[in-house]
Design a protein around this nucleic acid. Structure first.
Lengths: 133, 133
DNA sequence: TCGGTATATTCTTCTCTACGCATATTCCTT
DNA sequence: AAGGAATATGCGTAGAGAAGAATATACCGA
């Protein structure tokens, strides 16, 4: 039952926040660590859980690994991500996450690092210098 | 975080099917047992879990206890129940549950027992003989 | 008051999950 | 080739959750 896998992934706060972020923007692991202020192991393990349940896809970009929702997401996942966004609108925790995300992406595009060379759907800094295959 | 409680309740198959049924119709415990073909303990424990997480309300009707979604459901719960209904439409398991529910309610209104004296939103048998306070 | 029906709770066992520490892997740069 | 950065994995522990058996509780009717 696909639905149960989806709900299992959504029922932990860390994963819920990760999925909420991913419903807005593909991100790499270091961003999750920064946005959620969580240790690397914790983030990595929850991302593994999401991978095992096929709720996310990965793309290697040099040293970084960019996580995103599946390109061909099931109808159930799409519906639930939409529902999640609706539920999160106006919520303090999730709004703060989005703010931190935008800040992180802005910094990321700066002189220090540029991992998530995707085209973000939200505000973005400048100078996406390089995008290795 | 209210959302997490909701997802925790949804991430088990038994509870998922119970909540899906409740999104259509208030039901008493014996109906869940019959529709899901599950032993009494199992149903009762999962209902207790739903109660503890405030996803359901109960009303005593004589010997029976009728379960329903909260009258004043949170926006999150309402949204997720809507989403669940959308996701379940056309699914074999959930559709069969609904069919069994209607059959159970029809029998229930018959000469044998009449526990769920609510006004069902779906098809219904006849003769809702009594509704004790 | 007693028996019966509907439902809940307790206890035990087992599995799954979360977390942190330490370590491994992969890739890049020099 | 070597070091460093980003990310993943293995191990151990502790707690949550699921299931069934047995038992308890609450209500009803006679």
């Amino acid at each position: 039952m696909k639905l149960i896998a989806i709900y299992k992934c959504l029922c932990d706060e860390t994963r819920l926040r990760i999925l909420h972020l991913l419903s807005h923007q593909a991100l790499c692991v270091c961003h999750f660590q920064e946005i959620l202020s969580a240790p690397q192991v914790k983030i990595s393990k929850h991302l593994a859980y999401l991978r095992e349940h096929a709720l996310v896809e990965t793309k290697r970009e040099g040293t970084w690994i960019v996580y995103s929702l599946p390109v061909k997401a099931s109808a159930e996942l799409t519906a639930n991500m939409k529902c999640l966004q609706d539920c999160c609108r106006g919520n303090a925790v999730f709004s703060a996450d989005l703010r931190r995300m935008n800040r992180a992406l802005a910094n990321c595009a700066g002189p220090l690092a540029e991992c998530c060379g995707e085209q973000p759907k939200t505000a973005r800094g400048s100078k996406p210098k390089a995008a290795r295959a």
